[in-house]
């Protein structure tokens, strides 16, 4: 079926939809120049394409179109209760992009969005302006790569660089860049900063097989190693932990690989660690289960206050196991667990 798919489907980014008012925009033109062979389709509003009913998100993920749009309304949001806040009171996130070039079967985005196409918002200046208004009131801890994978497309938009520059201009701004990439080029191109946190999501290979198009554990660890050596602030995220067969062995083997690749000394320089077992809002899970029969999604989760998660004793055991694996290399004060913040 894979070859049938490959032969029939359009190449990713073979079509780029552009909101009409952005056609003359400099940044838009720069992006279009990078896709010289793409067919450009002018549209009125990104929702005309992104929010059509009955879309086939799985096929769209395999043949993603790019939609360049302008985001209006509120641009920076308070973090959701299921997000790890790492003890930050003014915890916010922003969506510069909707959807992701990766295709993780368990990803809440598959349940959250009606389309698998990728929307990139071009009005960076508006985001920065709203951020600056917030910064006048209090310090801000901002996750810039939550509903997407910004690092994978940094060459296209340069938004990680742009927000990193903002941390230089504002002492009370810290940003977190969550990634599953092996973004060594990006790390080399930025100076290390205590207020730009690169948060690498690490998973055992047994879980990575559910994360289509993502780099291997090995490749991610190479980027982590280089990031640490370059003086970047690195967070290692074991979140979401996924209940796969023999998960204890899988996570244990992953930890062995991490220690082998990074060494104990580097692990001491990791800023902190995040642990969280899989959880998802009930609405998103309903949509997600319709889109795939993957075992990681069909697991019999339990509903706790509107969020589906593993049964408490299973989740507790998974997170305790991961904490136990980390403790020889990290103090308890550097290990954050989602369950403990609520």
């Amino acid at each position: 079926m894979l070859s049938l798919k490959k032969n029939l489907l359009a190449e990713p980014f073979s079509h780029i939809y552009v909101e009409r008012e952005l056609v003359g925009d400099r940044r838009t033109q720069e992006i279009l120049h990078r896709f010289a062979h793409a067919r450009v389709i002018e549209i009125g509003h990104y929702k005309d394409v992104f929010c059509r009913p009955r879309q086939h998100t799985a096929l769209q993920h395999a043949s993603q179109a790019l939609i360049l749009a302008r985001k209006t309304g509120s641009l920076i949001y308070p973090g959701s209760p299921v997000c790890q806040n790492f003890g930050n009171h003014h915890f916010y996130y922003t969506s510069l992009c909707m959807n992701c070039v990766f295709d993780c079967q368990y990803c809440y985005l598959r349940g959250m969005y009606p389309s698998g196409h990728l929307v990139l918002f071009m009005n960076l200046e508006d985001y920065i302006a709203e951020l600056e208004t917030l910064l006048l009131e209090h310090p801000v801890y901002l996750c810039i790569s939550y509903d997407t994978e910004l690092c994978a497309l940094e060459n296209l938009h340069g938004y990680v660089h742009a927000f990193a520059r903002e941390t230089e201009r504002h002492e009370n701004l810290t940003i977190e860049v969550r990634t599953k990439t092996s973004c060594t080029q990006l790390l080399r191109s930025l100076p290390g900063s205590s207020r730009v946190i690169f948060a690498f999501t690490l998973s055992p290979e047994e879980v990575i097989r559910y994360e289509k198009k993502t780099p291997s554990l090995q490749a991610r660890l190479e980027a982590v190693r280089e990031g640490l050596d370059l003086g970047h602030t690195i967070r290692l995220c074991f979140d979401p932990m996924i209940h796969v067969p023999e998960w204890r062995k899988a996570y244990s083997r992953m930890m062995e690989t991490i220690v082998k690749e990074l060494g104990e000394e580097r692990l001491r320089h990791v800023f902190d660690f995040s642990i969280g077992s899989f959880r998802i809002s009930q609405d998103y899970l309903r949509a997600l289960r319709k889109s795939t029969d993957s075992a990681v999604v069909q697991y019999p989760f339990v509903n706790v206050d509107g969020f589906y998660q593993y049964p408490p004793e299973t989740a507790e055991e998974m997170e305790n196991t991961m904490t136990g694996l980390l403790l020889p290399y990290a103090g308890r004060d550097r290990i954050f667990r989602w369950r403990e913040q609520i």
Partner: peptide, 10 residues
Amino acid sequence: RVFYPDLVLD
């Protein structure tokens, strides 16, 4: 109103 057929099929 503009209708956009999905162009995933080449």
